[in-house]
Amino acid sequence: MANSVLEKLRSAVNNVAKDSKKTAGLLQRHTVDLQKSASQVSSVLQGSSKNTDQKVIASINAAEVAVKEAMSKLQDAARTAEEYGRGL
């Protein structure tokens, strides 16, 4: 009985690690898209002094930072889950 519970726990923890890695990979691709978008918007708005234009660029850059932070947290979660699973 205890062994089957342990196997279920190990499987669940391994799934968390796998899903976290997968999601981090998807976010990595999204980061590249955000970088391209920011670059395109910046080049189109070159030298624009409109406050709203600068807000668009700042918003895209802030989104990129948030995505990178989320990616890092997911990678941490995957590592922690893997370590925990190995210890079971």
Rank of each mutant, 00 (worst) to 15 (best):
G87A: 11
V56P: 06
L88E: 01
V67Q: 11
S37K: 10
A17S: 09
A17R: 02
K73W: 15
L26I: 04
S20G: 08
S20V: 04
I57S: 12
L27M: 15
K22V: 02
K73C: 13
A24R: 14
A38V: 15
V5S: 09
L74R: 01
K21T: 05
V13H: 01
Q35N: 02
D33K: 03
S49Y: 14
A77M: 10
K22L: 07
E64L: 04
A81T: 00
V44I: 13
I60T: 02
E69K: 03
G47Q: 14
V41Q: 11
G25Q: 07
K18A: 13
S39W: 06
S4G: 14
G87D: 11
Q54S: 08
S11Y: 00
V56Q: 13
L26F: 06
S42Y: 13
V5M: 13
K50M: 15
K21I: 05
A81R: 00
Q40S: 05
N61G: 07
Q54P: 07
A24F: 09
V65H: 09
S42M: 12
S37C: 08
V41N: 13
M1D: 10
T80A: 12
E64T: 02
D76M: 09
E83W: 04
S37M: 15
A77S: 05
S20A: 08
S39L: 11
V44S: 11
K18H: 08
A78V: 01
V13N: 02
S11W: 00
L88T: 03
T31P: 01
M1W: 10
V41K: 05
K22N: 06
L88I: 03
D19Y: 09
T31S: 04
R29S: 14
A63E: 14
L88H: 01
N14P: 03
N3V: 03
A63V: 08
V41E: 09
T23Y: 09
N15L: 01
N15F: 00
V16R: 09
N3R: 05
L34P: 01
T23A: 10
T52Y: 04
K21G: 07
K36C: 07
Q35T: 02
A2F: 12
N15C: 02
S72W: 10
S4C: 12
A63D: 13
V16M: 12
Q54M: 06
A24W: 10
E82R: 02
A62F: 12
V56R: 06
N14T: 03
S4H: 12
A70Y: 14
Q46L: 11
D33N: 03
V5I: 09
S39I: 03
E83I: 04
L34S: 02
K73D: 15
A58V: 06
V44P: 10
Y84E: 00
S59P: 14
A38G: 14
E82G: 10
A62Y: 07
S72K: 12
R29W: 14
S4I: 11
V16Y: 07
N14F: 01
S42I: 15
N51G: 13
D53M: 08
K21H: 11
Q54A: 07
K18W: 06
S72C: 12
R86G: 01
